[in-house]
Amino acid sequence: MSDALLDIRGLTAGYGDVPVLTDIALTVGAGEIVALVGSNGAGKTTLLRAVSRIIKASGSLRFLGEDVLPLTPEALFARGLVQVPEGRQLFGRMTVAENLMMGAYRRRDRAGIDASLAQTFDLFPVLAERRAQTAGSLSGGEQQMCAIGRALMAAPKLLMIDEMSLGLAPIVVDRLLDVLVAIRGQGVPILMVEQDVFAALAVADRGYVLEHGRIVKAATAETLKSDPALQKAYLGSDS
């Protein structure tokens, strides 16, 4: 029995009878940022969907020590597994403040919600400035901040971020990566799913490389960053 927050072993999942993922093993421990990287179609999003119990899966899936394989997505969310979905999925015609409050929809602790809001504005001062603007009027980077802020409002015990860097300028991605480190500093571990391998590995403690539905490499971020095969595959150079 490991003391990992999220503990996946021998997980197989897919759509219908076609398994997309085979024999996945992955853990996220307290205070960790873990990167799940891989190219388009490797099965990254499928893995997130399996973990959040949207699609069928078999094997072992434990969250906070509990077998969560039989749970519904709602029940898993209630236990603190919170997702920042791909493409941000904001409520475009609602204000930034309202979007953030939707993250706290299931919470009733007034003081805790206020504290989370203060914390979120602390991490993203620009959201405080734009709190009365509609989310749809924000820039792409600000929208991603709003999406992460909304997830933080749910008081996550583990944050899963799907393709955070998609469509964002490198300088914006760098800022967001800094924020992820700050979020981990506040005690929230992160599982990030990324196509941008080296952006993810820049802040991650450990990484997993997914290819054709299998984990082909699992190592510390340092090791993966200097892995020649990975550099060749994702940077297209031999340097």
């Binding site: 997505p73 709602e74 969310f77 209630a78 997702q83 979905p85 999925q89 904001l90 409520f91 475009g92 015609r93 609602m94 309202e98 409050m101 939707m102 993250g103 929809y105 299931r106 909304r150 749910a154």
Partner: peptide, 23 residues
């Protein structure tokens, strides 16, 4: 109101509303 927010959120983005605990 909280209910009103949930109603508007559901109208605007069903998947996201569901993701954050709206039934």
């Amino acid at each position: 109101t909280r209910l009103g927010r949930a109603i508007r959120a559901t109208a605007q983005n069903l998947d996201a509303a569901r993701l954050y605990g709206v039934n």
